[in-house]
Design a binder for these strands. Structure first.
Lengths: 220, 220
DNA sequence: ATACTTTCCGAACATTAGTGCGGATATTAT
DNA sequence: ATAATATCCGCACTAATGTTCGGAAAGTAT
């Protein structure tokens, strides 16, 4: 069995990620565009090679009739170690204009059933009231957070100067993620992106909802 | 949310078994014959009902564009006690103008002694040749990456369109992180920050060093 | 019963998506 | 170089597959 060519490896990983994202396999044309291949026949040709190599199952005349054969090539470079992890509930999404998702104060425990995300204790830190949000849209772009990012939040009403927090401007009824600077009667909110400008508000017009503990952006 | 009808339940379980057996979803006609339904339109109708109930994901005008909504995770019976993690070596820092750090090809093994970072296997994915870099300075600001961020890289020389990668412009001898789009003889490099403008280069002037797998920003 | 909603039927229709083929380019072996 | 093989390219063709629509049946509420 020959080693698959570079293009074939790219196709293979494209299929893998496509399935991961969509839960169904790609079409030949999906692969064509995704891997920047000039013709469907080239894709078909390489799929046949991959099938010969036993790396792929292909059913002819069946749309999306692909599945990965070498299913379990687990971790190859490192030994799996078990470490302490915390299960963080994914509470929802942030999007422009939408109310900011927060854990209900009545029952923090009924989060069971929500989707959970395992994160290593070490990188989360010791905080409590941790939850995660998925970002939708580019509304947080000035906080260097883009569509699809996962934001790890910690519920709190006080933050130190300079920390990034979800703050609500009462008078405008808007919520965004900004760096927070309390300056006596005024509060300055500064985007993470230094190319954007800061704004100041009356301190009693600003309400801190949660602080940002971490941002995770998975691109694959 | 109403309870699905008998026929809808049958369709749902058929889809489940079909995927179990084939690793890809059925067509409307597969369902039609499998559930002994007289018309494709009836299947389509009930699929819409199931989608409304939130039990099924359906993508219109996509063949086999079905997936079960209920199960978010593959493994159904595993206990979430300990998770697999990989130790990722922290190879160095990225800064403006500095040569891009890469693992030495001679000895991948002498990374011992380097600082290691434990990351969950699940969020890293199955890739090999993974390493991490710490960002210094704001040189990557247009890729939505700021000072102190941890960038998880995977060594590769080929990336697909749309992926973020570390690319080197040979003629300028510079290296940056950009979204990569191959367009035949030209290659377009697009910042993650949509407020910045894309640039195009001759394809043979662009060398792909690594692709960005993930970005981790810890703020605490 | 009457009206209203849900579900079903069939059959044509429109896209989507896999295949085939002649010939051009690479790549490798002799 | 020459030949042999592996890949790639467009493009047309066709099978696979989702959609639409008028109308019939079945089920529910008034």
């Amino acid at each position: 069995m020959k080693k698959p060519s570079e293009r074939q490896q790219m196709i293979l990983s494209f299929i893998e990620e496509f399935i991961e994202e969509h839960d169904f396999p790609p079409t030949i044309r999906d692969i064509q565009y995704g891997c920047d291949i000039s013709s469907t026949s080239v894709v078909s040709y390489n799929l046949d090679r991959l099938k010969e190599s036993g790396l792929l199952n292909r059913h002819s005349e069946v749309s999306r009739g692909l599945s990965l054969a070498g299913q379990s090539h687990r971790n190859s470079s490192a030994e799996p170690v078990s470490i302490d992890t915390v299960a963080v509930p994914l509470l929802g999404t942030i999007a422009a204009g939408s109310p900011f998702p927060m854990p209900e104060n009545d029952t923090w425990s009924d989060l069971t059933g929500q989707e959970l995300i395992d994160l290593p204790q070490a990188i989360i830190g010791p905080g409590t009231g941790i939850y995660a949000l998925k970002v939708r849209g580019e509304s947080m772009i000035d906080a260097l957070i883009s569509d699809g990012d996962l934001v790890i939040m910690e519920q709190t009403s006080v933050v130190r100067n300079g920390q990034m927090a979800a703050v609500r401007i009462k008078s405008e009824n808007t919520t965004t993620l900004k760096h927070y600077y309390s300056e006596g009667p005024r509060t300055r909110l500064e985007p993470a992106n230094t190319q954007m400008e800061a704004m100041t508000f009356r301190s009693d017009d600003v309400e801190v909802l949660s602080k940002v503990v971490a941002v995770w952006r998975y691109l694959g």
